[in-house]
């Protein structure tokens, strides 16, 4: 599937797409691939917002997911893209058993920063604390071809 010039694939585990609160328990997997550019972050947020809403997440949880995925993508743009805009970032959203698992994969090296604490007036370093505070599980895996951040949000 091609949306707005980007490659977008959709794989359904079941034959019916989740599109209402009544059948939202059916698992889904959707993915989005973007150019490594800050201006693409809005598209990523819209992508996860739409899916999380379809899965029945509350507005508060949807905001948490948008912030966390945005932070992971921003890190991928800044540190995981050695070739700049020519690099690509893949976002896979999977929902199964009341649980959203979102994987953000880039083509570079993850650069963790020491979290900014309480009243320290640091400009940066709040991305990982956001993910840890807003999601139920956060995992960062570095591989030979890039880094994958795995975020989990349980639907209450």
């Amino acid at each position: 599937m091609v949306v707005n010039g980007e490659i977008r694939t959709m794989i359904k585990k079941n034959t019916h797409k989740v599109n209402s609160r009544d059948d939202r328990k059916q698992p889904i997997i959707e993915s989005l691939e973007i150019q490594s550019q800050g201006r693409k972050l809005l598209e990523v947020r819209q992508f996860v917002e739409k899916l999380a809403a379809e899965c029945g997440y509350s507005q508060s949880d949807i905001f948490d997911i948008k912030v966390s995925v945005g932070e992971a993508c921003a890190n991928a743009i800044e540190h995981g893209s050695p070739r700049g805009k020519r690099n690509r970032i893949k976002i896979v959203f999977e929902f199964i058993d009341d649980c959203a698992i979102i994987k953000i994969s880039d083509e570079g090296v993850f650069k963790p920063r020491f979290p900014a604490l309480d009243t320290q007036l640091n400009y940066r370093g709040r991305g990982i604390p956001f993910m840890l505070a807003l999601m139920d599980d956060v995992e960062i895996k570095e591989g030979e071809c890039g880094t994958t951040v795995r975020l989990v949000k349980i639907r209450n």
């Binding site: 905001f63 945005g70 932070e71 921003a74 400009y123 940066r124 709040r126 991305g127 956001f130």
Partner: peptide
Amino acid sequence: DFMDSSGLGV
């Protein structure tokens, strides 16, 4: 509608 860590940093 939305603010992330870069907004806080600014």
